[in-house]
């Protein structure tokens, strides 16, 4: 019996790291980095207390939200409508540009050079935050909604084309082959063998991106690219906190309505 005891085999879960020393080294590095970051910022208790007082003052200043001044209400509605319009136009323009880019960036159907061009367009579009694009667009075409539409369309391409290209890469190639075998040309093969397979995804992604564009259209105004953002920033700069809160609530309402619509439509196409 005793010999059987010593033969008993033990088991520990193999580590995901190279070995256990590497594992502990990684943990130590993370801990040191965390401590250094905290020390580097030098957040003192007094600073936290001061900040707390200021925060309470701000929130007090916000309540109740102001909705009685007719002039400000008009400003608000105008801004929101502009934001909404920007999001719709930017989505449509962005999607129209994205679809050919997505076909270019799908490895299974595009020749290698075209594929790299398509991927390149997507990467460049994904590299920058919309605010950076909005700043550039404002410089290029002037303050206003056009700059915002440019920024949002530009970002739509990176998002939409990337996800659609991945969808195209997952299609059933049999349907494409069968179309090819009838003597169809390249474009016809895409129209019959590929497009019907990714159509639900195109609709779903469009709605999803519209939903994102509504949210982003409220922010690009901060740099002068149209929409409610400019009004938001102005109210804040003028210490008009109760109007600021009204704008925030309105934005939340709009985003929620957009989300409800997009959830409903996406539910219908699944």
């Amino acid at each position: 019996m005793a010999t059987k005891q010593t033969d008993r085999r033990s088991w520990t879960r193999p580590t995901a790291f190279y070995n256990h020393y590497v594992k502990w080294a990684v943990y130590v590095i993370i801990a040191v980095f965390l401590l250094w970051s905290a020390w580097n910022m030098r957040i003192s208790m007094a600073r936290v207390m001061d900040g707390w007082d200021a925060a309470v003052g701000l929130v007090n200043g916000m309540f109740p939200p102001e909705y009685t001044t007719e002039f400000k209400n008009e400003l608000l509605i105008e801004g929101l409508i502009e934001s909404l319009a920007m999001s719709v136009i930017a989505t449509i323009v962005g999607v129209i540009i994205s679809i050919p880019v997505a076909f270019m960036a799908a490895e299974n159907i595009a020749p290698k050079p075209v594929y790299w061009v398509g991927r390149g367009i997507i990467t460049v579009s994904r590299s920058f935050h919309e605010l950076i694009i909005a700043i550039i667009a404002v410089k290029a075409v002037g303050i206003g909604a056009l700059a915002g539409v440019i920024a949002l369309s530009y970002k739509t391409v990176g998002f939409f084309a990337k996800l659609l290209a991945e969808e195209i890469e997952d299609i059933d190639s049999g349907q494409m082959e069968a179309t090819e075998a009838t003597g169809a040309n390249r474009t016809q093969t895409m129209l019959f063998g590929v497009l019907p397979q990714v159509m639900p995804r195109i609709v779903g992604l469009t709605i999803y991106r519209w939903d994102i564009n509504i949210r982003h259209s409220t922010i690009v105004g901060i740099v002068g690219a149209g929409g409610i953002g400019a009004t938001l920033l102005n109210s804040f700069d003028q210490y008009d906190y109760d109007f600021f809160l009204l704008i925030i609530i309105a934005i939340i309402a709009i985003v929620m309505v957009g989300e409800l619509i997009s959830t409903y439509i996406r539910g219908r196409i699944q």
Binding site: Q175, A184, N185
Partner: peptide, 27 residues
Amino acid sequence: EYNLIERLTVMENVLSGRLGYVSTWNA
């Protein structure tokens, strides 16, 4: 595996046999 275009109608599938004879725009 039949390789039909699943999301299109039977008629579109059958007519796709003529794709080699129609223009892309008409397709």
